[in-house]
Amino acid sequence: MKKQIPLLITFVAGMVMLVQYFIPHRPFSEVYRLFNQWYLVVAVFAMILGIGNLIKIHSVRLRRRGSGWQYSIVLLCSLGVMGVAGLGWGIERGGFFDYLYWNMYYPLSSTMFALLAFFVASASYRAFRARTAEATLLLASAILVMLGRVPLGNYLWDRLPLLGDWIMSYPNMAGQRAIMIGIALGVVSTSLRIILGIERTYLAGR
């Protein structure tokens, strides 16, 4: 019974959402709107669940003096301060929340993203080797596109940006589309297996 009910819910919900896509008539259009509203509510509750879980894990770590407990203090304090600032004084421009957002959250987030610049360089240096004919072709295209997408390319040769754009618009796009079609078929097949209950591992167990 423990497995049957979730499978039944999955089947009914899946079939209803599938059918409503093709039937505009009531009550199917209303069902879609209803499911949409329920999902919005569930998404908000999931956020609350996540925050609760985070507080629980770090409080336990702090209490037990687990490894890195000092960072748990930082995390819990940050969570508290941002929450109180936003709820107490609002999120409008010029407020305390806004100040923390622009002066702490934004630089931290940008810094992590900026790591990519360094990692792209080190990964390229390490991995881009002309080992085979295909790898050499890939290398040549990568260099052309990289140059074509910055003003330096235009400075070296004014046709380079066009060449880079051509590689992006034709061979690259053909490859992307092929991958997307394969993914779409995979999604349909997986969704079908899940709706019909053939695939159950995500529910835990066989």
């Binding site: 990964a123 390229s124 991995a127 881009f128 992307q176 991958i179 997307m180 394969g182 993914i183 078929l185 995979g186 999604v187 097949s189 997986t190």
Partner: peptide, 24 residues
């Protein structure tokens, strides 16, 4: 199955499942 991230994984990982291979 994120086409934009596949090149990064192919470069940095030993094996990569491309797109639908994840679903397979």
């Amino acid at each position: 199955a994120m086409p934009s991230q596949l090149p990064f994984f192919v470069t940095a990982c030993d094996y990569t499942l491309i797109g639908e291979e994840l679903f397979a």
